[in-house]
């Protein structure tokens, strides 16, 4: 009995240590953010006169309101459409069994491991030829494509486990494929769709490469891309950079804390299936 007890404490101790290591960098950034602007603070040191004003200043210069709106527009442009068309494709690949299904599925899955950097160069010229550089479409359209391998794979994995007799029942009912999809299959796929939406939201919000290459104006970027620009412009002032970085991270962390159960579940499943 004591052995199990000890073991539990060793485990908890380890976990607490790891948690401390996870949080330490944020604490350090936080104390740096409170140092007088333009100075060069030390790692962790509570400043004599904490400059809460740095956060106000960072909020103003980073134009965080516009950044959030921009990220939100991009997320709204990507996530709903990606989820719908991936569900359609996943449903078809699992249930409608088109000819050449194996081949088609393989083509989609091929993209699962694709590093975005491998195609960023041609994407730049493609987006430029479409006249979409410096617009949010330059981020939205490529992401719709880049998310398809994972999303189709994910939704197909769901539909393949739905019992076949459900489809048959729907067909007996006289429903076409379209109606079966919308009114029978989609409502049953809610939890898969929810998780997929969370993952796509996070990946979009945090997307960095596409915005820095394709969109110059930080106000039309995603949150991560805007943070890159913020670092470029204010990286010379450590307290301001720290305050700004914390403010820019805050929305994600707050949303995460509110929906942490769903997020953790989605990320764990996402990893397993991905």
């Amino acid at each position: 009995m004591t052995q199990i007890f000890q073991r539990a404490w060793v485990g908890k101790g380890l976990i607490l240590l790891l948690m401390a290591l996870t949080l330490l960098p944020f604490l350090s950034l936080f104390t740096a953010a409170l140092a007088p602007g333009g100075t060069y603070p030390s790692g962790i040191a509570w400043p004599e006169a904490p400059q809460w004003n740095n956060f106000v200043r960072a909020f103003e210069v980073a134009d965080i309101g516009r950044m959030m709106v921009s990220s939100l527009i991009i997320v709204l442009g990507v996530v709903p459409l990606a989820v719908v068309i991936a569900s359609m494709a996943g449903f078809a690949l699992a249930k409608l069994v088109p000819t050449g299904r194996k081949w088609l599925y393989l083509v989609f899955v091929l993209g699962l491991t694709l590093p975005f950097e491998s195609i960023i160069t041609p994407l730049y010229y493609e987006i430029r030829a479409l006249g979409l550089l410096n617009t949010r479409f330059a981020i939205i359209l490529p992401l719709l494509g880049l998310y398809m391998p994972f999303s189709v794979y994910w939704m197909r994995a769901h539909f393949i486990n739905v019992p076949q007799d459900l489809s048959e029942a729907a067909q007996l009912d006289g429903a076409g494929y379209w109606r079966e999809f919308w009114y029978v299959q989609i409502p049953l796929a809610r939890s898969s769709i929810m998780s997929l939406s969370i993952l796509l939201f996070l990946w979009t919000w945090n997307q960095f490469l596409l915005p820095i290459v394709l969109v110059q104006d930080p106000a039309k970027r995603t949150m991560a891309g805007a943070l890159g620009a913020f670092q470029g412009q204010w990286g010379t002032d450590v307290p301001l950079l720290s305050a700004g970085s914390l403010i820019i991270m805050a929305p994600t962390i707050i949303i995460f804390l509110i929906f942490q159960r769903q997020f953790v579940a989605a990320l764990l499943q996402g990893a397993v299936k991905g």
Partner: peptide, 21 residues
């Protein structure tokens, strides 16, 4: 006005100049 650090400036200049705006 957009500002960036010198290293980024060097990397971005050719791309920026060849774009529409």
């Amino acid at each position: 006005i957009r500002q960036d650090q010198f290293a980024n400036l060097m990397e971005n200049t050719p791309r920026l100049l060849s774009q529409d705006n």
